[in-house]
Design a protein around this nucleic acid. Sequence first.
DNA 1: ATTAGGATCTTCT
DNA 2: GAAGATCCTAATG
Length: 206
Amino acid sequence: MRPDPGDATLPASFFARPSDSVARDLLGCSLETRTPAGVVVVRIVEVEAYAGEDDPASHAWRGPTLRTEVMYGEPGRAYVYFTYGMHWCLNLVCEPRGRASAVLVRAGEVLQGEDVARLRRGPKPTRARLASGPANLAAALGVDGEWNDTDTTSSRSRLRVRPGAAVPDADVVVGPRVGISRAVDTPWRFSLSGNPCVSRPRRAGG
DNA sequence: ATTAGGATCTTCT
DNA sequence: GAAGATCCTAATG
């Protein structure tokens, strides 16, 4: 039997290159989690690239720590970190082992499992806000620190990244990263133009 | 619509 | 002791 295209995952080679290229190409791909509560699938609509010791905004800027060890590891693994004493955020590790970099997944559009996502997010968020913002996205998917270092490239993983239809450059908004205070001008934030699930479109006019 | 403050972990000063 | 790859709520124009 030929492999079922529905089971395809992005291979490690997809992630084994600079994170800004990976980030751009992740737009339109989907993330899928499988837990006892059920399956949730989101389409990636917003990402940010982070590099390693040459990127002052990166967790790996000062070299490896216990927390950032995974960023130096295998491409295609999940880097999940805890922030502001409260929230989990999901990254996908890029570049070959030994070089730190990752893509922060900042927002998604829930394609399947909205009921499961809502169990985790509560009744208040609108559909567009269910997985909008990095901590909200991780929460909607049910991802927390126990998912750190998960291999997303295996078709048997509980966390998978699947290819999507190609997104033309005309549909991609490129700009500075959000919520950082160093390297604020580096244009490594990528989002789908006009998508209501993007975490901070907050522009009048557009 | 915009702003301010709280929650309270990890890392660095 | 302070800041941080955040989000929610309450108060204010």
